[in-house]
Design a protein around this nucleic acid. Structure first.
Lengths: 251, 251
DNA sequence: TATCATTATGTAATCCTTACACATTGATTT
DNA sequence: AAATCAATGTGTAAGGATTACATAATGATA
């Protein structure tokens, strides 16, 4: 979006791939609510997706991994490239530059940048959100109640969600959003949140168990009101095997 | 892949987005065979995908459309962005530079380029393939019998095919590969070629007709040996309506 | 006129999906 | 201590979709 030269002195312009940026849609799930991490720009009420630039010595995947690590503290997380945004004018330049003029000097803006979109699925409880040098807050926002976003970030977010929904039809990516042990209702609520529709618990359980990628543990979740639910874990080996045989589907 | 400055004098370096290229996998279908267009580099036996660079004044989609137009003569064709390739070293530089040294001066190579991959589906019969200024031939290659490809183009091609197969599960994109009027066996052979497996003609017909996106015409294909097959056309309006209602699936 | 390759078509069995309701649990309230 | 409450766990029947499978019709060619 802009040239980091001068903003962060450890990065010389020559070390960066020019006119290329990336934006990350970081999804988290907690108490039945699907959220994503957004950054609040210093001294404004403006919000945007976490993003970054690509260094000459790192792949775009590595750059996305680095941004994720910087914002969430996590590495080894699920990360998926979903689209490259390459319109000539991806947002109304002058109004946004004016809003952010106290943070980004006019001469540091690129006239144009291509942005690679990544989405990430993270275990909500494991994240400690960190703003970057231009922002004062990094917080979870319920996808059902998002603020206006800067640039074309709303479009990017919508496309990420669309890609996630589609991906969920082919692969059980949702497991990245849950702790290691989870209950069947938790998993179902996750699917409900991502796909934005109600499901039937009996049918959901039948379908997801039939894939064979879950292990029911000899434990129940204690300390909850009401009947104690069984705990399950995701069987990664079994999943790999199933994927190679042609895949799982969950519409 | 390389800086066009000096190669094509009508493009000044400053007019191009630096270190960004795009590669196009152009699929065609003819007589039961799925093919793609490849370029043969002048004075070599080296083949690559058609590609290009992005001008500062055009979107990446426009750049891809332009490349398609230049190679096939077609516009208004189906074009789908499927992935951005962004490793630091996307191919073994020195060997390839040596092979192409008579065409591309050493100093014009970028050390690194990010490439956006597009695939396109075109009506085989409508295409007149044209090589570019660095290549001497632009020809259809059967996907079952491809030559070695330069750079990381084999990986790009494989990923394009994978994306196409997945897309075919959600949308009847295959119609872009056929003439306006086509027979049911032609359509089935297309699906067989893309998905690389045999299908049953009775079941295929049932399934594809149930989507409601085909019109059976009051015509049969004449002049063919054997029983004259009915002609069908693709109902674009009906297709749009069905898509908005949640889609078609064809596994 | 016979041959041949190709097209067009229906039915039964199986599998998958959907719809649907109630007993159990364990914390909380009275 | 008992009653309440909200959430969990579970099975079956109907309908829909998928699969498997074989033969008659056609029209060019030999």
């Amino acid at each position: 979006m802009f040239d980091k030269k001068g903003v962060d002195p450890k990065w010389d312009e020559a070390e960066l791939v020019p006119q290329l940026s990336l934006d990350c849609v970081i999804f988290g799930f907690n108490e039945g609510v699907l959220s994503c991490l957004l950054l609040k720009w210093k001294g404004t009420d403006e919000w945007s997706l976490p993003g970054g630039v690509v260094r000459q010595v790192e792949s775009i995947d590595d750059a996305a991994t680095r941004v994720l690590k910087e914002r969430t503290g996590l590495d080894k997380i699920f990360l998926n490239q979903f689209y490259a945004f390459g319109k000539v004018k991806r947002y109304e330049n002058t109004a946004i530059r004016k809003k952010l003029s106290h943070l980004v000097p006019e001469k540091l803006w690129y006239d144009r940048a291509i942005s690679i979109g990544y989405y990430s699925l993270v275990n909500f409880a494991a994240v400690s959100p960190n703003p970057d040098e231009l922002t004062e807050a990094c917080v979870w926002w319920d996808l059902k109640d998002l603020p206006e976003l800067l640039f074309d970030h709303r479009e990017i977010l919508d496309k990420a969600l669309h890609s996630l929904r589609r991906e969920l039809s082919f692969q059980p990516v949702g497991f990245n959003l849950l702790p290691e042990k989870f209950t069947m209702p938790e998993l179902m609520r996750l699917y409900e949140a991502i796909l934005d529709r109600k499901m039937d618990p009996r049918n959901f359980q039948k379908k997801i168990l039939k894939t064979g990628i879950l292990n029911r543990l000899d434990e129940v979740k204690k300390g909850v009101a009401h009947k104690s639910p069984f705990l399950y874990s995701f069987d990664k080996d079994r999943y790999e095997a199933v994927l190679n045989e042609g895949g799982l589907f969950m519409q």
